[in-house]
Design a protein around this nucleic acid. Structure first.
Length: 884
RNA sequence: AGGCACGUAGCUCAGGGGGAGAGCACUACCCUGACACGGUAGGGGUCAAGGGUUCAAAUCCCUUCGUGCCUACCA
């Protein structure tokens, strides 16, 4: 493969598939077992089996892959545990839609057949997102892929359920829950999305049972009046204190109901009188409990009025509202209607308006579990990045409600509870009991409800590693190292994994949680199918290459800010990939040794010493940034270094030796060029796995995959501070000349002569030794360097620190232009000097500022002053020529 | 209603008490033997507004305005 000719530009399509297959078939994604290496483990946030890769997944998994590839190269034993989630409601919806298209439904096909159909569906389509993750380059250990409905994970679910039940953390009872009349199931609190709606506030009169008059209540849901069992007022409310016989007549149904007194009622709102419907409102439910009120359910599971709704039986809840308002109006009981805005709950899966409903459900009593989960973060056993999310986490944990875990759907883990048909005894067990423990009856039926999908997801960090068995994986990798996820599932998933992990494993499920941003469109809008502004990651990868895409995401992944993604940006990074490709191409064209010159025999140039020192520094910068999840910083360091240091300066300078050098210096240059490109590729590999592997495999002297090459360490390289200083000087002088060339529009083909007045500090020697660089990169043919050299007649002058660089170019320099240019620089320098002098003449500054700051300002001020006076000299010199 | 972010170059954003930065876009000159998906240089900002703390504020604090997001049972 090393003999293939290298194309002029990088074509990602050709290589991505090839290398992914190579890695996977060579088992490079698998951890070692056993291993003496430090373990590093990430469990993937399991995507829904119904899903296809979207931008959120792409970002999420790119970041995880960066961490995993980086840690692997750093010598860790890495397990990236992949898998998918059975997504109860979503998956069931998909299959139900299929059935509906064939004019049937799940009730017609029956439970067993339906579940079979879901499994078939999953066989057929469930692997889609997994392959898309491969396309993204994810280095998951696919041999360990798990699914929340797997036998092993299901066993974990039953184990957890039974234990929690036995410990009293799970209970069953009649509670008000959030019901989705379309999905036909209960939802947990957080599965309800609240959205502001323009509603109406109806003022309804409830006549007193005895005597004249009425109480007026305000409500947004008049149809629930049919289930009212009281009207509540605040005991402090003067308006109602004197009620002697506190009963009113419920309109329409003409049922007497009591007026009760409860501090919950807000006197300021409406009329200060609140109708109480315990079966259809969570707050009313609470109040009803406190006052032992009857619960009358008037709406059924379909959102239709039931037989207790009297004349409205069979009406939809919204039709009923209209009808009842009309009827109230006719009876003169409707006082007024006001426009009103309130937050209304909607199903997070299908957007149907939630119906709070009284029903029998299973709950996890979260209090004690949540306290531990909260404490773990407070004590730093799990760290959340960026830390401002900790506040959000605490707030939720500290005000957590019991978790409704039963769902009235079929696709999921069926609750392991059996009811005795004869005596009603409840049995909770891992397997079906033979007979009733109370009456010995044999007629036991299993609970029909299934568990919330998040119940099984909550076990993911240990169920995927083999729990409840004690496995080597659990031993090695639990607690896992990091969890990477979006904030949208901080409560749904992260919090619950914390609770379950701590409870069942006795330790937190992960050491770090990294919360990343949301990917938005170029206008900053959330991508959504309905808006039509989604960018398909697969299309992006096809067009720009996976590496460019991944690098874009990383470069934009600044903590705490959402990512606005545009094609323009991705194109920019596509160019960067190509730049790397061409740098490698250059190396390949000039270096063919399998064995570079050994270190002891080399003779380093300044450029060599400089780039080797920089490689050490930059690899540390990159590693440090990744370690604290500053992916944008890490990517930025790579970009800046590779493009603007390695390519712009080092490779250009190395041409000196590669093209014209003699034996040892040429061989040294070859060795360093190779070393530099290799180190750069290794640094880039976690971000751009494909192009780096492609190049790596072509480079002479490489063995195996770049995945198994170590991440560069500063100890691999020189550390030559002097080289940094010297390079600074050389680059400064070259830039100074280029500056004049640019401003004077001198074409690169025109050579110039330079006279450099180097000043002190050994500058002369440094520049003298590196004359060749200056000549080539500044396009100069003759250069003289000295101290106190005077400015020649026909020249333009640029300055770097105290060095004056006079550019001679008779006939090509417009002296008027040069005067203008000098004046501009003088103005700028003067402003800078003034600013610094203002500080230096300030007593407070001299007395209170740290001495090193004062010294620094003084040095800078003096330097600028010297520069300024030289610039002024040059200007008056030119003015002299002009007028003389 | 509370909370959390964020307003820095035309655009997208880094930075975060002592010299205003990057990428893209723009302008000029260049097809120089890795790359025009390139090179070199240049223009461009009262760091949202007002106040405070400080020797020093884009950076810390307060207020205002604007923009997002999250949480919440006020019917």
């Amino acid at each position: 493969m090393k003999t293939e000719p290298i194309a002029k530009s990088y074509e990602p399509g050709d290589v991505e598939h090839k290398w992914y297959e190579y890695w996977e078939t060579n088992g490079l994604f698998k951890p070692e077992a056993p291993s003496h290496k430090m373990p590093y483990c990430i469990v993937i946030p399991p995507p829904n089996v119904t899903g296809t890769l979207h931008m959120g997944h792409a970002l999420n998994n790119t970041l995880q892959d960066i961490l995993c590839r980086f840690k692997r190269m750093k010598g860790f034993n890495v397990l990236w545990q992949p898998g998918t989630d059975h997504a109860g409601i979503a998956t069931q919806n998909v299959v139900e839609k299929d059935l509906a298209a064939r004019d049937t439904d799940r009730h017609a096909v029956g439970r067993d057949r339906f579940i079979q159909l879901v499994w078939e569906w999953r066989e057929k389509y469930g692997g889609m997102i997994i392959n898309q993750l491969r396309r993204l380059g994810c280095s998951c250990d696919w041999s360990r892929e798990r699914f929340t409905m797997d036998e092993g994970l299901s066993r974990a679910v039953r184990e957890v359920f039974v234990r929690l039940y036995d410990e009293g953390h799970i209970y069953r009872g009649d509670y008000i829950i959030n019901w989705c009349p379309r999905c036909h199931t209960a939802l947990a609190e957080i599965e309800v999305e609240h959205r502001d709606k323009d509603s109406l506030l109806y003022y309804i009169r409830y006549p007193f049972k005895e005597g004249e008059g009425h109480l007026t209540v305000a409500t947004t849901r008049p149809e629930t009046l049919l289930g009212d069992t009281a009207v509540a007022v605040n005991p402090e409310d003067g308006r109602y204190k004197a009620l002697s016989d506190p009963h009113v007549i419920l309109p329409i149904l003409n049922r007497p109901i009591p007026v009760i007194f409860d501090r919950y009622v807000d006197m300021e709102f409406g009329t200060g009188a609140l109708k109480i419907t315990p079966a259809h409102d969570p707050n009313d439910f609470e109040i009803g409990n406190n006052h032992h009120l009857e619960r009358i359910r008037v709406i059924d599971e379909n959102g239709m009025m039931n037989e207790l709704a009297g004349p409205y039986k069979g009406l939809d809840r919204f039709e009923c509202r209209e009808q009842i308002v009309k009827d109230l109006e006719n009876e003169g009981l409707l006082e007024k209607i006001e426009p009103y805005q309130n937050a209304v709950g909607h199903c997070y899966r299908c957007r149907t308006m939630i119906e709070p409903l009284l029903s029998k459900q299973w709950f996890v009593s979260t209090g004690p579990l949540a306290r531990e989960a909260s404490r773990a973060v407070r004590e730093g056993r799990t760290r959340i990045f960026p830390s401002n999310w900790e506040g959000v986490y605490f707030e939720w944990m500290d005000s957590i409600k019991d978790w409704c875990i039963s769902r009235q759907i079929w696709w999921g883990h069926r609750i392991p509870a059996w009811y005795c048909e004869e005596c009603g005894e409840v049995h909770v067990a891992k397997e079906a009991p033979e007979n009733c423990r109370a009456c010995k009856g044999r007629d036991l039926v299993q609970e029909t409800d299934v568990l919330d999908t998040w119940f099984s997801s909550a076990l993911w960090p240990f169920s995927t590693l083999g729990w409840p068995d004690s496995t080597r994986e659990l031993e090695t990798f639990y607690p896992t190292s990091a969890l990477v996820t979006g904030f949208d599932i901080l409560f749904f998933w992260v919090a619950r994994m914390m609770m379950m992990g701590i409870h069942f494993m006795g330790d937190v499920p992960f050491r770090d949680v990294y919360i990343h941003a949301l990917v938005r469109d170029a206008e900053g809008k959330k991508m959504s199918k309905s808006k039509g502004n989604v960018i398909d990651p697969l299309e992006v990868m096809d067009r720009f290459g996976t590496d460019a895409f991944r690098f874009t995401l990383s470069a934009l992944a600044a903590q705490g800010r959402d990512i606005k993604l545009s094609e323009e940006t991705i194109l920019g990074y596509r160019h960067f990939v190509n730049k790397i490709w061409n740098a490698a191409r250059f190396v390949l064209m000039n270096v063919d040794q399998e064995r570079p010159l050994e270190r002891g025999k080399r003779s380093y140039s300044l450029a060599d010493r400089w780039i080797l020192t920089r490689l050490g520094q930059v690899s540390e910068d990159v590693a440090r940034a990744i370690d604290v999840y500053q992916f944008n910083e890490a990517a930025g360091h790579c970009y800046q270094f590779v493009w603007h240091e390695l390519c712009d300066w080092y490779l250009e300078m190395a041409k000196q030796e590669l093209y014209g050098g003699d034996g040892v210096s040429k061989e040294t240059a070859k060795a360093v060029v190779l070393e530099a490109i290799m180190a750069a590729l290794k640094m880039l590999h976690p971000f751009m796995p494909f192009v780096t592997e492609e190049i790596w495999q072509r480079l002479p002297g490489t063995q195996g995959s770049i995945m198994t090459a170590g991440f560069p360490e500063s100890s691999d390289f020189l550390r030559d501070e002097e080289a940094l200083r010297e390079m600074d000087l050389v680059m400064g002088v070259i830039t100074a000349v280029r500056n004049i060339r640019g401003e004077m529009n001198i074409p690169p083909s025109k050579m110039v002569s330079l006279i450099i007045d180097a000043g002190g500090h050994g500058n002369q020697g440094i520049l003298g030794h590196n004359l060749a660089y200056i000549k080539t990169l500044a396009k100069a043919d003759e250069v003289s360097i000295g101290s106190g050299l005077s400015k020649p007649d026909k020249s333009a002058t640029a300055m770097f620190q105290e060095i004056s660089v006079h550019v001679l170019l008779e006939g090509l320099i417009d002296f008027g232009e040069e005067q203008k240019r000098l004046r501009k620089t003088i103005d700028k320098t003067e402003r800078e000097v003034e600013g610094l002098n203002r500080k230096l003449s300030n007593r407070g500054f001299l007395d209170k500022a740290p001495p090193e700051i004062v010294a620094d300002v003084r040095v800078r001020s003096e330097g600028l002053f010297t520069k300024l006076s030289k610039l002024k000299q040059n200007l008056s010199f030119l003015e002299g020529i002009d007028h003389g």
